[in-house]
Design a protein around this nucleic acid. Sequence first.
RNA 1: ACGCGCAUAGCUCAGUUGGUUAGAGCGCAUCGCUGAUAACGAUGAGGUCCCAGGUUCAAAUCCUGGUGCGCGUACCA
Length: 1042
Amino acid sequence: MDNENQNENFSFVESEKKILDFWKDQEIFKKSLEQTKDCPPYIFYDGPPFATGLPHHGHLVASTLKDIIPRYFTMKGRYVERRFGWDCHGLPIEHEIDKKLGMSAQDAVEKIGVKAYNEECRGIVQRFTSEWEKTISRIGRWVDFENDYKTMDTDFMESVWWVFGQLWEKGLIYQGTKVVPFSTALGTVLSNFEAGSNYQDVQDPAVTIFFKLKDEDAYLAAWTTTPWTLPSNLCLCTNADIKYVKVRDEEKQITFYMAEARLEHYSKKNTLEVLGTVTGADLKGRQYEPLFPYFADLAEENCFQILNDDYVTTESGTGIVHIAPGFGEDDNRVMQEEGIKASVCPVDDAGKFTNKITDYAGVYVKDADKEIIKDLKERGRLYERSSYLHSYPFCPRSKTPLIYKSIPSWYVNVEAIKEKMVAANKQIHWVPDHIKEGRFGKWLEGARDWAISRNRVWGTPIPIWINDTTDKRICISSIEQLKELSGVELSDLHRENTDDVSFSIPGEEGTYKRITEVFDCWFESGSMPYAQLHYPFENKEMFDAGYPAEFIAEGLDQTRGWFYTLTVLSAAIFDKPAFKNVIVNGLVLAKDGRKMSKSERNFTAPDNLMEEFGADALRLYLITSGLVKGEEQKFDDKGVKDMVRTALLPWFNSFKFFKTYADLDGWDPAKHYVEGDNITDNWLISNLQTLKKNISKEMDAYQLYNVVPALFTFIEDLTNTYIRLNRGRFWAEGLEADKCAAYSTLYTALQELSISMAPFAPFFSEFIYQELKEMNSSSDAPESVHLCTYPTADESKINSLLEDAVDRMNQIILLGRQKRNQVKIKVKTPLQELTVIHKDEALLKEIARLENYIKTELNIKSVSYDQDEAKYINFFTKPNFPALGKRLGKQMGKFTGLIKKLSEAEIAKFERQGSIELDGEVFTQGDIDIFREAREGHDALSNSLISIELNCELSPELLREGLAREVINRIQRSRKDAGFNVGERIALTVKSDDNLQLAIEEHQEYICGETLTNSISFSSEGSYDFEFKIDDYSLEIALTRV
RNA sequence: ACGCGCAUAGCUCAGUUGGUUAGAGCGCAUCGCUGAUAACGAUGAGGUCCCAGGUUCAAAUCCUGGUGCGCGUACCA
């Protein structure tokens, strides 16, 4: 491999593509599974996406999480199967077909039949699978697409039947009429989640209507925004505790009742005279005349009377609510509670009045509003008409307003198992944790029965057969059971095959026929843990061993979706949670803080991003953000670019540095691996162990957002401390022990880093791993970084004292640079002396071990140490608040003042004796913090932990040495420009001013050594290839190859 | 409307159980470094920690009430 060339043109994107090929050709994913197949399983559930859309940023976040965790646990020695899943059924698919055919599903079924309709659906379900596979693979997610599960597979559907059968046996299924959100365009009931997904602010007509009391020449004023429900009115409702007034509108010649609190509102346009006051309770039981004749006979069933309920308020309207139990859940409830069973719902599936409503039969309800209002006006029953702005649910598919109507539906009695669900939730570890008790916990507590039937075509048929004579019901929960009863053995369970299967049972009259409804597709995705394995028909042991799953990860929107349905079914059947750990990711917003929207074009397509910056950068960006703890994140492409810059490039550069020199020296880990005792080597190795320890702690808690920053810090330490300080060791001639130790340390760090990073940045980790592997002449290392064991910390190599010491050294270097900046002396100009000041002798000794690094970094001739801080530094003290606050409580204020006022002498005494008494209170070490700041008039600097003094006096000698360094710099630049290789030796001709020449002569040996120059000749004439200005001096040089 | 979350530098975000000098990166300015560097390093400017109360010796942090944003829930007739 031509490494030289490859490095010059290294591209993360190209490298990733090569690695994708490598994984594919060598079947690394498969091998990782084979390698772990006897290990304890780690069960991961993949939530199935709808296959109708393309993957977006939200899927990428989830996909990254769904890749990192399984990779990590695989490397930890677990067997992690990853099956992709597809949600195939449901409205989105049917809606696509309806659009294509240009008609509703009902019409389509009538014209072409169930079979042909389902064929259409089946045909488009997998339309985008190749795009999904492409994007998911590109981001580096390893998932089994071949062995995927589809909710339309016969095995899957049969397990769904089994799940339903379980609920049926436990008595959790019932048929009821409930008032539900209904889409008149789709002709179907919507689930709660669907109904809530599209609220819009709309203007609806708001009318105040009079109902004539039977026993008095007065009316009741009721207010409604749905005039079309008035023909179905069966009762009126007041609040027992609200005061009502009887008023007279002389102008309109009418007397009526309304809430006192609403009087003000109605008095604005009308002159009203109050005749008397009653409570809602007083009104209860009084009868009124039906507004319309259609259901007048229901008066026999106690309709057309006034009821009481607390849900009536006086925030709007008249405080008297019109009740149409067919169209309102509260309405229905109030009447049920009063024991009135009557309910009417004279509206068909298309939202049109039935023949019962003779005057408006066939009219779409919203269209009927106007005519009804007109009719009421003519009859003198309309008091006021206005419009009302409120948010109203719309059908998310057809964008038409939903109506609420009562419909026969099949329900899961969720309320009966609420406690089980709450108990199951207690066993789940949520990231972020507030969802457990918050959003999800609250949702469970308020859970309501779940309508699972849909009057649809493309779905899993609900396996209930009803006897057409006796109304006896049988739930069938397997293909086998159906065969036993009917003699028909089905290989596909869709409606075209099941609808016509009927049977009778010997000794019973009548024929059993299947109901026509299919399942809500959420029931199917909630059945996924069982159905993907075709449990219990197959894989019984496998399921039992791995349930509940260890881990799932989905977006915050699934709180009410998949997280919920999994929990409902699992609690109902097994009284357990379905999963133990869940990471909930937040919503990805566009850069401008709004939702990402295709029409707004306010984001870059995922594929383009990966084409520009690579998948690793994208992955790292996503999982370092708040997205992995359920927070939203404004997605900025620049953030992805920054990941390249702040993490991947330094990592790459440190590797490239290593490789450049190791190749030059022919260093081979198999032959030249040495553990030396260099202090920075020990430090880096110690740092590495600490890193591994922290990673494993955070990963155990599924807190990914803490893992990657720790890795970044390590990369930073590696490049800006370890390599920077040790460059000289790699430049040394030959392969001495110390140099081998340096190589070995760097090799170990890079290798372990690549393995540690593998779950997070799987591509670049692989790249580094392969490169390092290639350098090893006798490597029996695994073929891929992803087949390695995840490194664990060797705690015996952790030396926290040393880690601290290096921190302090870095502080000293920073202070030195700060000082040089202040006095404007470049690092190239050497300074004579640095004094490190600290009272602690042991610390000074520790720092002295790092003296050479300090000298080099700050370009200092000598370092001295001084324990007598008072010479340079002022002290000031502050109480250690956390410690003292608890002890002193209210007295804290007083002592804070005393402590801050301590004199230098008292502080010195305190330091010497280790304690001090103030106003009767004894303070010991740790109670008082001592801070340091440089004393004025000194060249000292302090960061309150450590202090330095830098001798900034310059002598001509020092200045000339500085000049020599400048010359080296110019020669190196020239070498590079002239195209010399790193190792090539040169001869130099120099033309310069006298003082500069003196500097060069004085430091000739040093200059030659640094620049690989064999000889320097001086000239005073002619002109040369390279010309420079150094301060006020001019320098011209020419280079020739030797 | 209710529930949950969020609000910190021009921008994107850290900020442990309350603890007194509130941090990082980007951007900006200045200086420097560069034979691992698509780079980088240092220094500096930049803050009403959304607002108002409260608890406390002490509040960015806890409580209450607002405001704004997001998500979720909701037939308020």
